[in-house]
């Protein structure tokens, strides 16, 4: 190992951060080279004194008062973080709002589309979200429309009630029947509201494939009451208008 190489490695040698073989090579060189041995002793002491001197100088340090005032002011400014560091808070609020909206859309509400739409500011938007396809039938003026998602299934026939439209004179229930043999008796509805039979007025049907869509008119029922539709004597769905 050359003297220059040894001297460059001396600091690493003093701090024992050399691999064992390199350390052994320097040990061997220092044992045989008086110049490098003296240089090593000098450097070790010099490094120690330099470290002490610099640390002593640092310990005597005083932060200039104007800088200290500036630092305190900058901490006051740092209290309010910029928006990109506060985004988790905003994300949390948005998350809670999203959960609330999903819950709102997923529950069975008893409000009519007209009641929802009459809410200030967001009423019409909420009505669109809650009742996306709710349109009053043309022959039922001023009707309020409620979307319903009730169903029942017996013997391979599935009954689904999907919409109720009510105005001052008529309550129209739309329901679908799928599967099985759908005849006049099978589609015949009966409606009960608070243990009272609701007078039936008539119905129309529309068939598409194995789905029969029935629109049945009854006397109107006041809002908020539980109503049970029985179709064909065996299928029952309860809902609110």
């Amino acid at each position: 190992m050359l003297c220059d190489q040894v001297q460059i490695e001396l600091d690493a040698y003093f701090t024992s951060s050399l691999p064992p073989e390199a350390e052994a090579a320097i040990d061997s060189h220092l044992a045989s080279c008086q110049g490098c041995a003296e240089e090593a002793a000098t450097m070790r002491e010099f490094g120690h004194n330099l470290s002490s001197g610099l640390k002593h100088w640092v310990d005597q340090g005083v932060c200039p008062p104007e800088l200290m005032a500036q630092l305190e002011a900058s901490i006051c400014g740092a209290r309010r973080q910029p928006w990109w560091q506060r985004w988790p808070t905003y994300a949390g609020i948005a998350g809670v709002a999203a959960v609330f909206l999903v819950a709102l859309l997923s529950v069975r509400l008893n409000f009519t589309v007209g009641q929802v739409a009459s809410l200030p500011f967001v009423g019409s938007l909420a009505a669109q979200l809650l009742y996306p396809n709710a349109e009053a039938p043309a022959d039922l003026p001023d009707a309020t429309v409620v979307k319903v998602d009730g169903s029942d299934e017996q013997n391979g026939v599935k009954l689904t009630v999907d919409q109720i439209a009510t105005n001052m004179y008529t309550m129209r229930v739309r329901y679908l029947l799928r599967g099985g043999q759908v005849n006049a008796r099978a589609i015949q509805p009966e409606l009960m509201a608070t243990n009272r039979s609701v007078p039936f007025r008539g119905l129309t049907t529309q068939t598409a494939g194995d789905v029969v869509t029935v629109t049945a008119d009854f006397d109107p029922v006041s809002p908020g009451q539980p109503i049970t539709l029985t179709v064909g004597g065996t299928l029952h769905v309860t809902f609110h208008n």
Binding site: N49, L50, S52
Partner: peptide, 9 residues
């Protein structure tokens, strides 16, 4: 001579 200490900086 290793006259370092307060002169170090």
């Amino acid at each position: 001579a290793l006259a370092v200490d307060s002169d170090a900086w």
